[in-house]
Nucleic acid binder design. Structure first.
Lengths: 110, 110
DNA sequence: TAAACATATGATAATATATTCATATGAATG
DNA sequence: CATTCATATGAATATATTATCATATGTTTA
């Protein structure tokens, strides 16, 4: 993470958002809006992990995890690299942490 | 908005999130993950509006809007007050702006 | 190169969700 | 107090989504 977010920056960011951008935003948030996916993302806060590790951490079967990994990757929230037989996944950027942190604050204060 | 979000604060916020909290977070993000709802939220960035105004802005029928307003209110993202026959809605807190701003940044950079 | 291992994928079934339509509630007004 | 206006709500339908099962793909190793 490399940036600060203050009132001024926030206000600038939310000015003049087009209808298309709002739809894109909805699509992005939909990705976070599933507990399996958000658990995967949070699992990757520790650093990169392969599919088997994620399955163990979440106690879910491999197919379900792979399906969700694909959705996360298509959304560019995670990236992957191959290491022998294994595929290793990691967070694609720091926005994931920021977005989840904001959400957490809202949930805590509600 | 009254706070700054820097790396340190973000890291603190995302430490030790329980499974239940992650599920709550998923539920919260699910609310943002629908284009009608996010358009309503963005519409309210201008300030408070009644149901009819929101219907006009979004060019959608009243029942659909009311159903979504109820979901947004249950999630504590908006609040309402009565003014005569009209119900007037507004954003419940500033996290909404911050969350949407973060999402927008991600979408723009993708 | 056949077998074993790790992951991905397609089809299916179960569940959740959004919008519409019809109608109910609640407030203002003639 | 009957009517109109504004909003809410319930039921139904249409669509989307998730997990599971079976199987395919790709990589290593005996």
């Amino acid at each position: 993470m490399s940036e600060n977010y203050d009132d001024k920056k926030i206000d600038h960011l939310v000015r003049n958002v087009s209808e298309d951008e709002l739809s894109d935003l909805a699509e992005l948030f939909k990705i976070f809006g599933d507990s399996t996916r958000i658990k995967i993302l949070y699992d990757l806060f520790d650093g990169e992990k392969n599919v088997s590790e994620i399955c163990e951490d979440l106690e879910m079967n491999q197919s379900a995890i792979s399906h969700q990994l694909k959705i996360l990757k298509t959304s560019k929230l995670i990236k992957s690299r191959r290491d022998g037989k294994a595929m290793i996944y990691s967070l694609a950027d720091d926005h994931v942490k920021v977005i989840i942190a904001m959400g957490k604050e809202h949930v805590e204060e509600g």
